[in-house]
């Protein structure tokens, strides 16, 4: 565990907490894409299949449980909690899951490190995580009015990806045999998807103005 990996995990955790805070205390999920949240449930469910079979550390297992639990509860709130569900932008959030999932399934079957069940599922989760933010970015583009918490949520998620890239660079130079091309490329693609959002986020922060995306 290095400082970049820890910072990445902590920003990831903070992003989830910010979103839960918005949903649980303000009882609003306005501007939040249910499609993206459902894709994250699938990402964590397929990636952490090993939770009972491979033990790395208490830290790892605990974080896996937190990410599984929080993603499930966010989706539950958005679908079944009456007050929260009422604030959901259903008409704007129209991205099709299969449009993103099918290519990821095919790609995971074709390109993986090892052809075992766990490894293919893990690889699928990496590919799907890379594009899972797309429905959220499309929703932002459509609604254009972004409250502070939603903006912070996406900012923290992007930060998590950025720290993971620093972590990989650090590990590549400090650990022998640490080479994971699939993880790196899908992680890089994922981070690049945030670039546009980051640009406008910093612009609004610098000008001390509310975040607004161009039409």
């Amino acid at each position: 565990m290095n400082i970049f990996r820890l910072a990445g995990d902590m920003t990831h955790l903070a992003s989830v907490l910010v979103l839960l805070l918005k949903i649980h205390t303000i009882k609003s999920c306005a501007g939040v894409s249910l499609k993206t949240q459902e894709l994250y449930v699938i990402v964590f469910a397929t990636r952490y299949l090993d939770i009972f079979t491979s033990f790395v550390s208490i830290y790892n297992s605990l974080m896996k449980l937190i990410f599984l639990g929080s993603s499930f509860s966010i989706v539950w709130y958005m679908r079944y909690h009456k007050a929260v569900h009422r604030t959901y932008d259903r008409e704007q959030d129209t991205f099709r899951h299969w449009f993103l999932m099918l290519p990821c399934i095919l790609l995971a079957l074709l390109i993986h490190e090892k052809f075992t069940f766990f490894e293919v599922m893990w690889t699928f989760s990496l590919y799907l995580e890379a594009v899972a933010i797309l429905p959220q970015l499309v929703l932002l583009q459509r609604t254009r009015n972004i409250d502070n918490l939603t903006g912070q949520y996406i900012f923290l998620l992007g930060g998590y990806r950025g720290f993971y890239i620093l972590n990989w660079i650090y590990r590549y130079f400090t650990e022998p045999h640490y080479v994971h091309w699939i993880t790196w490329i899908s992680g890089l693609v994922q981070t690049l998807l945030y670039a546009d959002f980051f640009y406008y986020y910093f612009l609004s922060w610098k000008n001390n103005k509310k975040l607004q995306l161009p039409a």
């Binding site: 079979t53 075992t116 766990f118």
Partner: peptide, 10 residues
């Protein structure tokens, strides 16, 4: 071995 699953990241 073949079935070794070595992912230590989240």
């Amino acid at each position: 071995d073949e079935d070794y699953f070595d992912h230590d990241e989240l």
